[in-house]
Amino acid sequence: MDEFTSTRSNHLIDPVLHAWGTEVPIYLFLGGMVAGIMLLSGLMALRRTDDRTSHALSLLPWASPFLISLGMMFLWLDLENGFNAIRFYFVFQPGSPMSWGSWILLGIYPASILLAWTLSPAAFRETWLRRLSSVPALESISKWAMERTPFLAMANIVMGAALGIYTGVLLGTMAARPLWNSAILGPLFLVSGVSTGAAFMLLYRLNDKERVFLGRLDMGLITTELLLLALWMIGLSTAGAASRGALGAILGGPYTAAFWTLVVALGLLTPLIGEWIELKHGAIPGRLPAILVLVGGLSLRWILVYAGQFTSWAGNVTAALH
């Protein structure tokens, strides 16, 4: 037999690590969605060949700065010492994904706001230029941005990809939590983020052409996400004892039911089948699969953040025995 006892009972550490609660998965979800909206806005801006863009799609890029602000509010709420938050911007720590992320977040604002401005309907721009006529240099900034829409579209694609990947790398670089410790988490969170971004856009009154484009793209994204999830599990199941033990959290362990029902069945397979049926019958992609994708995207992050903290090297009995 092997029996262990410990006198340690530190709050949020014992018996199971629970350092990151609800705020972090919500932030990761919103961050991923913004990454998707930026990437898709950039892509669609580059593809735009006529003026038949829907009013909703023209205004949707404005969602990025608002949603990322909401996400950053959740991130700030997670900080135990929020007054020191400014310290993120006193240094750059190249080994820390969180440091990368805080600097990436700063770049999100100018990139997304300027692209949103250039893609907005002309009447919208004129109204706001008039309303904000007292703001110095606004007109020249507008002129500068309007002449550089392709550059801003590319900047949104690059920044969106960086934001989406970083939300996964943030967890993936934590060797202490074997369930997270996989390079797959970067692309997985990026693809999932773009999928939730597309789903968020599909909630609005887009035209049929836009809905079909986003719906078909989402089918590809969901399929890729399923493949990445499979690769992630193959990676962990063929790695060391700690990784194999960690995978048990979603293969028989306490997070099994939540992961397979909320993430895989409800959040990926059901919308994929729904979108496939829509495509097969020539129907225009609706809102229900999109809502399920959003539920799945939030569930993926929520369950991974919690399940990852449930796993550790020390939790693996054979590892603790030396």
Binding site: D78, A85, M174, A176
Partner: peptide, 15 residues
């Protein structure tokens, strides 16, 4: 300098 972000807590294999 600490913000209480808890990245160090999550990254420590010894808790």
């Amino acid at each position: 300098k600490c913000t209480g972000c808890k990245a160090c807590i999550a990254s420590c294999p010894y808790d």
